[in-house]
Write a protein that binds this DNA or RNA. Structure first.
Length: 347
DNA sequence: GACCCGTGGTA
DNA sequence: TTACCAAGGGT
């Protein structure tokens, strides 16, 4: 390690030439005119990007900002419309907290986001990372962001060989040392761009790295093996039945799941419990049920799921008319169930 | 601190 | 096919 003070200047110089062009980012021309990204757009993009790739977020960000251009517009939206717009992006607690946060900002804070990381973190769905990201990018506060990219870059630059998550406090301390007083927002985005394009988890492209002369991990030849992570648990497999009931004029039986827990607040088809052994076949109504030839397989954060899909035509109270139902509004698991149901034989 | 919470791309 | 991984937050 030469000098910690050399890191940010080298990084910012690289960023000025290599920053990715992203829908939620303003470019150098805008900055020259004194324009910054609206806090609403920074907030929305950062929440969408939590544990989610840029490629997955792009279209959702455009759809949200087109439909709800301001935080007040979003605050006035129907819960179901926001959940439907979020469908497929995953981690649905984010969508519920997004709406909660929008309503606090719009109705209790006069439509303006707080400008400090400390105040931002008090809002729903905004934790330490997102608070620092908004404060630095939108408001130029010299806050330090620590995300997966920063953990990786810092681990490598300082050659930290102790495993995560134990080294988090040390990583945060070093990331803070590296954060500049000026351009903290650009520094944060530069760290993330470096982590996403050069200092990647596998096969980092050290030859193109602006920090190659500074990086202790590279000097020791161990950069690619960092950060060291604690071993993960194996995922169990759960089994269940799913029931797709359609009416004679295209109406569909769907239910909204409770706001807490897995897929909370999303729309879906009735299912059995999901258990280690397949529960009994117990459809919501008696009908001529047929079984799809192929089970639906889906993996969540902490378990695998195999659903046997059944289809029938019939009627039940509360079915959604086909004008009010779109598979696009369903989380991915339920889209898969819908697709599988189309392959079940008619009776 | 441990556990819960989605999804799609990649090797 | 399986396992890993990604701009984390809530409880």
């Amino acid at each position: 390690m030469r000098d910690v003070a050399d890191i940010s200047p080298a990084l910012l110089a690289w960023y000025d030439r290599n920053a990715r062009v992203l829908p939620w980012r303003t470019g150098p021309a805008d900055h020259a005119k004194g324009l910054r990204t609206a806090p609403y757009r920074v907030w929305l993009s950062e929440v969408m990007l939590q544990q989610t790739t840029v490629a997955a977020v792009r279209d959702y960000f455009r759809a949200f900002t087109t439909r709800w251009p301001t935080v007040t517009d979003l605050a006035q939206a129907e819960d179901g419309d926001v959940m439907a717009a979020w469908a497929g992006l995953g981690y649905y607690a984010r969508a519920r907290n997004l709406l909660k946060c929008a309503r606090v900002v719009a109705f209790e804070l006069g439509g303006e986001f707080p400008q400090t990381a400390r105040e931002l973190q008090a809002l729903p769905g905004i934790g330490p990372y997102t608070a620092a990201a908004i404060a630095s990018i939108a408001f130029d506060e010299p806050a330090t962001v620590v995300d997966g990219n920063v953990e990786r870059v810092i681990s490598r630059v300082f050659a930290l060989t102790d495993p995560l998550p134990g080294t988090r406090p040390e990583i945060a301390r070093l990331a803070g040392l590296v954060t500049p007083t000026h351009r903290a927002g650009d520094h944060a985005q530069a760290m993330m761009d470096l982590g996403a394009t050069i200092c990647t988890p596998r096969n980092p492209v050290c030859a193109l790295c602006p920090l190659i002369e500074i990086c202790e991990g590279h000097a020791q030849g161990i950069a690619a093996s960092l950060p060291v992570k604690a071993p993960k648990k194996v995922k169990p497999t759960r089994l269940g039945h799913a029931y797709v009931l359609t009416g004679p004029s295209g109406e569909v039986l769907v239910e909204r799941r409770p706001d807490r827990g897995l897929l909370g607040g999303t729309l879906g088809f009735p299912t059995s419990d999901w258990a280690e052994t397949l529960p009994a076949f117990a459809p919501p109504v008696t009908a001529d049920w047929t079984q799809a030839p192929t089970d639906v397989r889906h993996t969540f954060t902490h378990f695998h799921l195999v659903l046997t899909v059944h289809r029938a035509t019939g009627h039940m109270e509360g079915m959604l008319g086909d004008n009010a139902f779109s598979p696009e509004d369903l989380p991915t698991l339920m889209r898969k169930v819908w697709e599988a149901a189309q392959t079940a034989p008619a009776k």
